[in-house]
Simulated scan of single mutants.
Amino acid sequence: MRNSRLTIIADENMPSVEPLFDDFGKVVRVSGRDLSAEQLIEADLLLVRSVTNVNEALLSQAKNLKFVGTATIGMDHLDTAYLDNRQIAYSNAAGCNADSVVDYALAAIYREAAIRKVDPKTLSYGVIGAGNVGGRLVARLEALGVNVLVSDPPKVKRIPSFIDTPLDELLQKSDVVCCHLPLTKAGAHPTYHLLSETELAYLKPDAIFLNAGRGPTVDGEALKAISHKQPDMTLLLDVWEFEPEVDLPLAARASLATPHIAGYSLEGKLRGTFMLYQQFTEYLGAMAGKQFSSILPLPEKPILVLDDTSTALDVINFLYNYDADDMRFRDSLSTDTALQRKQFDLLRKTYPVRREFSSLTLTGVVNDSLRHELHALGFNVEVKH
């Protein structure tokens, strides 16, 4: 296999596949949502995203397939038991876009806090799911000095010192609830509809509820019902239970609504492809000869000079226009379900370049409090004080 040219089937929306994988063989781009078994007849390597369900039906004619890589944190769209049975190696890109999702969550929270005219550092937080994304969010929130409760029962088994808060207690005590769960339907702790009518009833009447994990971990009908009973509740939603189909009334109820793009920073997308390149070269028993820096362009906005009027929200707004994301998404929604589904995928395919907080260096003169806050949020701070 190492000495032959491979046929590499890759999702059309995965960046930088050619510069990383061209040395191995011919890259063929495909629509991940519409990929068929016939397109994989000659495939040696398959690179996908979360929109492609990799299962027996899809791989029924892929007799040459040796490796499947998904440029995502989760693997709920891979039938790993089938892949194991076929002895097809597979890998994900765990953590590739975790910082991007955390940036999105913090931007959304700061946006809502400004609307409510409250200091986000005075709110209490609950994080459900402490994996790659949730764990990093907790770290940044703790760096901000806020009170954070975390619910992740499986983590207790892996890390006995981890303090797990019962879900009902977390929901009752938290002003802001952030859901960052993978989707699992089996095992000791399935997450499918983990938050349903019973659990959601524990939310504070004016809670801020954010879901940037997987849509089906929350019962959409139950969330819609409880949010209408509690008019002061705020919904910040990036994922949807039946996406690409979107529950239109639920989207209308949300204060911020986006098409599963929380992890769509340029760094996150490129890092996903690069991690699969590293894992595939390891599978081949070769050395990865290319560097991540070779595919990551310099940011268009590398520096922001602050003054004594600057706020953390000003800095976030300089780097990320979340209102534009929300507006584009709402403009795409249609009662024509087929059209709406197509528009959902088109928004993701044509998503504008967004850089992570860490790409921005802050200079200028600000007070110690703001300097600490910006550093905790994830920005590079070189300001004087």
Rank of each mutant, 00 (worst) to 15 (best):
T122H: 15
R348E: 00
F329K: 11
Y320D: 08
A201E: 13
I73A: 12
N317E: 12
V101K: 06
V156E: 04
E18D: 12
A98L: 03
S359C: 15
L377W: 14
H193E: 01
V146F: 14
A324S: 05
F209N: 04
I261A: 09
G364C: 03
E142W: 12
E267K: 11
G126M: 06
T198G: 04
D175A: 13
T80H: 08
H189T: 12
L360D: 03
R330P: 03
F280Y: 15
L296T: 04
E42L: 10
K63M: 01
H180Q: 10
S50D: 05
S161E: 13
E356K: 09
N317T: 13
A107T: 13
D76V: 05
T363M: 11
L266V: 14
L123N: 07
D84Y: 14
V102W: 00
Y104W: 09
T350E: 07
A10G: 10
L83F: 09
L347I: 14
A37I: 06
D232F: 02
Y104M: 00
L235H: 03
D323S: 13
A114L: 01
T363Y: 07
V177C: 06
L106R: 06
A262R: 04
W240F: 05
E373R: 15
N55T: 05
L236T: 10
L339E: 05
Y283L: 11
T273N: 04
L78R: 06
G32D: 06
L6M: 09
D79C: 06
G285K: 11
L298W: 01
V133Q: 07
V102P: 11
D103P: 10
T165H: 03
M233S: 06
K157F: 00
T198Q: 13
G32V: 01
T165D: 01
N132G: 14
Y90P: 12
M233I: 10
D323M: 07
D326W: 03
G272M: 08
T198M: 10
I303R: 05
A93T: 03
R33N: 07
E300A: 15
S227C: 14
S174F: 13
T361M: 12
I159G: 01
G272V: 05
T337Q: 07
K26I: 14
K155L: 15
D325N: 10
R111E: 00
R328Q: 00
Q39I: 10
Q291G: 01
A130T: 07
V146C: 10
A94T: 08
P166S: 00
D79L: 05
T363R: 12
A207T: 13
E300G: 13
V48A: 09
D206M: 00
V366M: 15
E197N: 04
H189C: 03
R328I: 05
N64D: 03
V102D: 02
D308H: 08
S31T: 07
L59C: 12
T281V: 04
